[in-house]
Design a protein around this nucleic acid. Structure first.
Lengths: 351, 351
DNA sequence: CTGAAAGCGCTTACAG
DNA sequence: CTGAAAGCGCTTACAG
């Protein structure tokens, strides 16, 4: 390692410890007695004779060489990087989808950059810019409504697959839940159980909240009942505050459906704070089959989303888009599964 | 944009759409009528006259230029990247710490790469290698016990700050909870509440589990009581399975402490499955003040960890290490806070 | 199969 | 303050 000797001959101020020395492809080439090009080929899938390939492998082991990904990306012009921008990493739905995306990406030899926007359009714009600077291969994105609408105008250098939420542009591939149907199922279930004054609490930042509201209103109208939908910021705190208000009103609802698990937490807290028994004073149902929803008493009736399938499908759509850039836009709509628990037990006197 | 014209003159197979065209610093330089060097300086903190700086800004706007981070990192030899390797992203403790790390990093103009090992030493080795290939600036790492012990031998090209878990090498900066003290507090609380046969369930993959076990045994011995500690894989399923077994034994415990929130979930499930009332049949206490721990009935007594402080402190330690590589190793030990809820209510007949 | 050479898009001494 | 030139560490046509 001639390089090291050279370093030790520098002035004291410039001396680096051995551990700071990074060995490059040139060092490996020298150690293996081949050209850097051959090392590069041996490391990748280039055509190299078995003999040289083994020499290179030995030299890599001896030197402890690790390729510099920045250099590789710059030169090869493909970064092998998937961007994943989600609205709220505290929401286990996104954690789970993220894991699935990472799994798929990993198997394809790609890494993923995860960004969390906290439902803030400004941060979405920021991260979109960052993704361009990273020259990502493709993006999987759960945008706020605001950004979803603007996505048409924004020219991105990479394909994007929308998850969980869609704009109305139909410009991007997407994988979403059948939100209207899922929420209608939930409401219909409540009606069958004998509830009549069913309120709905929806997140105001996403198209998902809006679609679930649609399903809510449709199901109630079909049954000849009056919808009463309210929008809040998608946080447990906002939901709890709104509900405490709501449940103090004279004609308070006997059941509440909510559009995600954060809101469901808030709803439970509000009920507890007001000493309302679930479900006898207030039935509750929501989305996402998190572990805790079966741990609370009573267990919560929820729509379970196929989170893994959402992540895997998003990656699959992305691959196919990369392979065939011109193919028509596709939208995969998945169904949720209603898991009935004690929080929506039948009203006394109803079968 | 002469470049574009050139492209359209290529053979059909090579034609790229305009959106695939990436504009480089040369294009901006040409548009601004300056050298690439000046553009680079104007974009950074180099010395540039106000007039030229404005010209460059205008050219950037006009061209939609976005710097190529791979090129910047390669050339400047610093990536501005923090690695964060955690054991289980489904554990909200790590989600929360991760958010705090990202926050600190973001304010310092750095990005973070998050990797999830699922407590698997092989994946830890893999990601450690990846971090080297990314040439990260520094690493924040919650290792398994196995890897923590081997960390001494492994030469890394970047400083590492251990969180949540430490080896016994004392080789790396670290920020950890005072696990012994925290668990001893929990056990002492149970003793004061009248419990006598207090079992302990600990994760077997981390030093954290081991230290909490120490605190558990110390507190019981101090009170002249017999410890009964069992180790399981750190998952709700493993905890539930072990506990179902345990609670079927003739002399079953009247209280169980566990070393993290995943195990706590498993413990609750086991109790429910066996129709044991909490706390009258079995008291329960654990770690991490997750939202659901106060939502279940009864609420769970837990040690709350200062998650944000852990993340911020880890970043602070990393910065200082980068600034002064030779300074002595530091270990920051933070205290937990015991939050008492119904799951450890006093045994009937005890004050 | 192998090597010499060019170049990815930047930044940064080096001169002026 | 500004520009020309070199070079970060790779990969990849281009020849052989």
């Amino acid at each position: 390692m001639q390089n090291r000797l050279y370093l030790f001959m520098n002035t004291a101020a410039k001396v680096k410890t051995i551990s700071e020395m990074t060995v490059s492809i040139k060092d490996v080439a020298r150690a293996a007695g081949v050209s850097p090009a051959t090392v590069s080929r041996a490391l990748g899938r280039g055509p190299v004779s078995d003999a040289l390939r083994e020499q290179v492998a030995a030299a890599v082991r001896a030197t402890g060489y690790r390729p510099n990904l920045a250099a590789r990306r710059l030169r090869s012009q493909h970064t092998g990087t998937i961007g994943l921008i989600v609205a709220d990493i505290r929401n286990p739905f996104f954690t789970a989808v993220g894991r699935a995306v990472e799994e798929s990406a990993y198997q394809a030899g790609m890494r993923v950059i995860l960004c969390n926007t906290d439902e803030d359009p400004e941060r979405e714009a920021l991260y979109l810019g960052l993704m361009q600077e990273e020259r990502i291969t493709g993006l999987i994105f759960a945008p706020t409504r605001k950004t979803a609408d603007q996505l048409t105008r924004r020219a991105l250098d990479f394909p994007v697959v929308l998850i969980d939420r869609v704009g109305n542009s139909g410009l991007h591939d997407a994988v979403v839940l059948n939100n209207v149907e899922a929420m209608a199922d939930l409401v219909t279930h409540l009606i069958e159980r004998g509830y009549r004054r069913i309120g709905g609490l929806f997140g105001n930042a996403s198209s998902t909240g809006a679609q679930r509201r649609e399903g809510y209103e449709a199901a109630l109208r079909r049954a000849g009942l009056m919808p009463d939908a309210r929008l809040v910021a998608p946080s447990a705190e906002a939901a709890a505050a709104e509900l405490k208000q709501w449940l103090s009103e004279p004609q308070r609802p006997d059941a509440i459906v909510v559009s995600n698990s954060l809101l469901l937490m808030g709803a439970i807290k509000a009920a507890r704070a007001m000493s309302l028994q679930i479900p006898s004073d207030l039935a509750l149902a929501g989305f996402d089959n998190e572990s805790w929803t079966e741990l609370v008493e009573p267990g919560m009736t929820v729509i379970e989303q196929p989170v893994e399938q959402i992540g895997h499908t998003a990656m699959a759509l992305l691959y196919e888009r990369l392979k065939t850039p011109t193919q028509p836009v596709r939208k995969v709509v998945l169904s949720g599964r209603c898991i009935v628990r004690g929080s929506t037990a039948a009203v006394v006197g109803v079968a």
